[in-house]
Amino acid sequence: MTTTEFHLVRHGQPQDAERLLGRSDPELTELGWRQWQSSCAPLTWQQLYSSPLRRCAEFGQQLARQRHCSLQLDDRLQELDFGEWDGQALAQLWQRPEGDFEAYWQQPWQQVPPGGESTDALLQRVTGLLAELAERHRGETVLLLTHSGVIRVLLSWLLGGQQQGNAHLSRVALGHAARLHIQIYIDEQGLHWPQLMGLFPAPTDCE
């Protein structure tokens, strides 16, 4: 049996944080940079991957230089594509007379943002990436720089609740630079056994 460890870290605070940021691509704030540094400082890893969106990739490039390692960008670490809602103010989305944003929030596995990506599609691309990296980097630790939606959907998957409504959205506090720790065991038959090792809150020493 071999084990691959994963640390998934959400990006620090970006510009326009009060908007629904899927594929929208603002820069990090100064606080966001400090949050990233604080969350990643205690970690050690052999492999570094990042979402290509700048709020992840720009920090990843800096981190790779600091740690003298290579950085690989992977589209599968991107945030959910919110389609027509992407980049809109959250307060305005909640007030939409159509009620479609509220319906999505209540039933994210059944509803899809207009012109956007389904929650199931997000889950499939992220779990597919983990399975691929678990095989490629057996016995190593992998750091993944990513987004809230990626971490939330993996929490739902790990706890077997992806068809249980929106608990991964409404019941999990996941601040900027929060971190998820997962191990995937690969047995003698090649089967994967994922295990949740810890969920770490956003750093509080950056304000």
Rank of each mutant, 00 (worst) to 15 (best):
D205T: 11
A202E: 10
S118Q: 01
E5D: 08
I186T: 12
D74N: 12
G139E: 11
G161E: 08
M1C: 05
S118C: 11
Q47C: 14
A202W: 05
R138V: 07
G99W: 07
H192Q: 09
A57K: 03
A64V: 12
F101V: 09
D16Y: 12
H147Y: 04
Q107N: 15
I151G: 05
V9N: 06
E30G: 14
R55K: 07
T2Y: 10
Q110H: 15
E140I: 02
T141M: 01
L199I: 06
A134E: 01
H68V: 09
W105M: 10
P201S: 11
A91W: 15
D16A: 12
E140Y: 02
E27W: 12
V172S: 01
E27I: 07
E207I: 13
L77N: 01
L93F: 06
E30A: 15
L130W: 00
D100E: 14
Q47E: 11
F82E: 02
A177E: 03
T204H: 14
L90K: 14
L196R: 06
Q15I: 13
H147G: 06
E102V: 15
L159T: 11
E58L: 13
R171G: 10
P194H: 03
G175E: 02
L122N: 06
R34D: 04
T29G: 12
Q124V: 08
E102W: 13
G190H: 03
E188A: 15
R23S: 14
S148I: 10
A173N: 12
F101R: 05
L122C: 12
T44I: 08
Q66D: 12
R55G: 03
F82D: 03
L43P: 01
P14Q: 05
Q124P: 07
E132I: 02
I151P: 02
C56I: 00
G60A: 04
R96C: 14
T29N: 09
G12H: 06
D205F: 10
G198I: 09
C69V: 11
R19I: 08
D25Y: 08
G139C: 01
E18R: 13
A64R: 04
A131E: 08
E79R: 04
P203S: 02
T146C: 15
R138C: 13
S170T: 14
L155S: 01
L63W: 08
A17Y: 15
D100Y: 07
L144S: 00
R10T: 00
L154V: 01
D16Q: 13
R55N: 02
W45Q: 00
A57H: 05
L21A: 04
P97F: 10
P52D: 05
E117L: 05
W109L: 14
G128C: 07
C69A: 11
E30P: 14
L21Q: 09
G161C: 08
Q35I: 02
F82P: 03
Q72A: 15
W94D: 12
V172Y: 08
I182D: 01
S39E: 00
R125Q: 06
W36R: 03
R65C: 08
H7W: 15
G190T: 04
Q164L: 13
L20S: 06
